[in-house]
Design a binder for these strands. Structure first.
Lengths: 190, 190
DNA sequence: TTTCATGTGTTGTATAAACAACGATTCGAA
DNA sequence: TTCGAATCGTTGTTTATACAACACATGAAA
């Protein structure tokens, strides 16, 4: 638990790079953004970029993960149980996130972004399930998290395709009994 | 002329400090701002602050100078002659700058700020006079720059006290013949 | 085809900045 | 008054970053 406290320069540099990337993303589409663009905007040397990130795809991954986590307001959920309200909040966070992305142009990278969102969802669901059920059914919990993340993400795609006519909350509500049932099923097993 | 190109880290750090200071200035009055506040906001170590600035007054000086210079758009004026239009532009820049300051609270530091503005004006006037008249009458040029800087600054104080009822341009226009005459006087001497 | 320009990813060395520690002030509360 | 906490300003050591240079890839123009 006693982590060695990362150097302030590291935190600052990562922040500068991420902020610059997000800033540039609102102006250009991803394909048009070069490492040089980012490092110029961030006022850091190009070599330093490679000290922190594998390449620009690695940055995309980490930047989007972070933005998504902020949207999800992780600190709040992590201490709550996975109830009806939590599902609604998480679904709304995803639709908000997708709306914010749609204004920018990330054509050709939808699949990458989709994967990033699902990965993050899976992590969050797994943590919440672990808190409620302990480590006994670990494999089952992991699979449940996988299914929930794909399912919720799929619902958000469906919501986008439906021209967003319904409010996200109304859209997801009908499915919640089914989602909750799956979790209760786990409880019975214990 | 071949300047040794300052390290990117230096430029970045100075910018972070200055930006943070200006940001904090819009929230607190100068007396309430500590070095710790600035370095926390800028994400730099406190020791680094003292590597770049004597103390917080030194920062105030340099930060205001820079903001003022940006307002004055120095690059434009430096290549122009000191004509009627230049006087109007410079006066407008000062009144703009003063308006931007008045929203913040720098109570008790008006005199310091006044001095900084005059110092910068003096530098600019001297450069422009030097370009027009050469180095022959150097002492006289310096004194002229001093008088112009105090005079123009005084006019801006007068404009502020007049409740800003007139547009700055109209306010300064009547005095321009007098200001220009002083400069022409110098030409006759050559 | 060649050529030229621009971007990628990496490396060795120099240096700005982080860190931790210190004594000295300042200042408000006990 | 004394105490304690916060801020100031400084120093020696460690480390992240700048810089310059490199080979390689891509792509557009000649």
């Amino acid at each position: 638990m006693t982590q060695p406290k990362t150097d302030l320069r590291v935190l600052r540099t990562r922040k500068l790079i991420m902020d610059s990337f997000i800033e540039l993303s609102s102006k250009k589409e991803f394909k048009a953004i070069t490492v040089k663009d980012i490092t110029s905007e961030a006022m850091i040397n190009r070599a330093t970029f490679y000290y922190h990130f594998e390449d620009i795809y690695d940055l995309l991954e980490k930047a989007l993960s972070e933005v998504l986590l902020v949207n999800l307001n992780v600190d709040t959920y992590q201490n709550e149980e996975l109830n009806e309200e939590a599902f609604v909040c998480i679904f709304q966070a995803i639709t908000n996130f997708q709306k914010s992305l749609s204004t920018r142009c990330h054509r050709g990278y939808e699949d990458t972004i989709a994967r990033i969102i699902r990965d993050q969802l899976e992590i969050i669901f797994y943590k919440m399930l672990l808190k409620q059920n302990g480590t006994k059914e670990d494999e089952a919990l992991k699979m449940t998290a996988v299914i929930l993340s794909w399912g919720i993400y799929g619902a958000s795609v469906e919501w986008r395709n439906s021209s967003q006519e319904k409010h996200p909350e109304e859209f997801i509500k009908p499915t919640i009994p089914y989602l909750m049932a799956g979790i209760d099923f786990k409880r019975e097993e214990i």
